[in-house]
């Protein structure tokens, strides 16, 4: 019984909060149409959004606990990759100590960790993307059927049209490349975006009317 009451309460809260934030979006577009009512909606909407920020901060704390729990369990059970879990936990504790002793996330010590450890590692890692793109393109460019034939044909035209060599091969190549990017590609992308927009609205509305309740068990 208490579980059912909890579900109903959660659903009511979700619907009311969702409608208030949605109303805030519309009311702020027409500030003079609703008088004092629009100000109440605006203030309530802003307050609810700021509460979301607090929930996110708390979720981050739980995520932190999850990382420690997963890797500590891995070390204790001596699963493969224990060494990596150990390094991860040591790095985590080390970064925390630097943060605490140097005076928070904006301190000189924390900035050193970000500028000389985290950022170079991220940049190095993303640099691998160039090789991965080449490998993926090599695999994708195998002609298996009519669809992949057109895929390869368009890709080759766009590739040659992008580089200076293309214009020497055939002066029309950059023009065709521009047409491919601006007409069929753009039309396809707009079609995808239209479908995505409708899907996003449908997902939101399902939650707003209480038909979909991912927040209850």
């Amino acid at each position: 019984m208490s579980i059912r009451i909890g579900r109903v309460l959660a659903t009511v809260v979700a619907i009311v909060v969702g409608l208030l934030v949605l109303a805030d979006l519309f009311v702020s577009q027409w500030p003079n149409s609703f008088g004092g009512f629009s100000q109440i909606i605006n203030v309530t909407g802003a307050l609810l959004v700021s509460w979301a920020a607090i929930v996110i901060a708390f979720a981050l704390f739980l995520g932190f606990a999850n990382v420690i729990s997963v890797h500590w369990t891995r070390i204790r059970s001596q699963k493969p990759g224990t060494i990596y879990s150990g390094i991860l936990l040591l790095s985590l504790v080390g970064t925390l100590i630097v943060g605490f002793y140097s005076g928070g996330p904006n301190s000189y010590g924390s900035q050193l960790v970000f500028d000389f450890v985290l950022q170079p590692l991220e940049a190095t890692f993303f640099a691998l993307l160039a090789i991965f793109i080449a490998a993926a393109a090599f695999r994708a460019f195998r002609i298996r059927d009519l669809e992949t034939f057109f895929f390869v044909l368009f890709a080759v035209i766009v590739l040659l049209g992008q580089v200076p060599l293309g214009i020497y091969l055939w002066p029309e190549l950059p023009v065709i490349k521009d047409w491919i990017l601006n007409v069929p590609t753009l039309a396809g992308v707009r079609g995808i975006l239209l479908g995505v927009a409708l899907g996003t609205i449908a997902t939101g509305l399902r939650i707003l009317i209480g038909a979909d309740r991912p927040y209850t068990d």
């Binding site: 995808i192 409708l198 899907g199 996003t200 449908a202 997902t203 509305l205 399902r206 038909a211 979909d212």
Partner: peptide, 24 residues
């Protein structure tokens, strides 16, 4: 694209998801 939003309708046949797919 939008195919990802159809997961609930295809995998679990939930009425809310099937209905929203038709509305979409």
């Amino acid at each position: 694209g939008e195919e990802i939003y159809a997961a609930g309708a295809y995998l679990q046949k939930q009425p809310a998801h099937l209905g929203s797919l038709l509305a979409q």
